[in-house]
């Protein structure tokens, strides 16, 4: 009922909000594991940080896709 009252822009914004939750959880898990790995093996911190950075950027792409869909649908 509430959804039916929303405009196209509102639905797009809601979708963007929902699309940002998954990447947030993903980045939290990813960084948590990376920090644990760095604490256990400080000598491999460089390698872990490189892969962590790329992982964060890949996960962030999902949120970017959500934003682009919101932006294009809202236009």
């Amino acid at each position: 009922m509430l959804l039916a009252e929303l405009s196209n822009k509102g639905v797009a914004a809601l979708t963007y909000g929902l699309a940002a939750i998954g990447p947030g959880v993903g980045i939290g898990y990813l960084v948590g594991q990376a920090v644990q790995a760095m604490a256990r093996q400080p000598e491999s911190a460089g390698m872990v940080r490189t892969t962590m950075f790329l992982g964060i950027a890949f996960v962030e792409a999902l949120a970017l896709i959500g934003f682009v869909v919101f932006f294009l649908a809202g236009n």
């Binding site: 990447p23 947030g24 960084v31 920090v35 949120a63 970017l64």
Partner: peptide, 20 residues
């Protein structure tokens, strides 16, 4: 490393907000 965790998450939100 605690700061790294915090900055990773809040940085994600901040950068998304900046792009948006």
């Amino acid at each position: 490393l605690g700061m790294l965790m915090g900055v990773s998450l809040f940085g994600f939100v901040l950068r998304l907000a900046l792009i948006a």
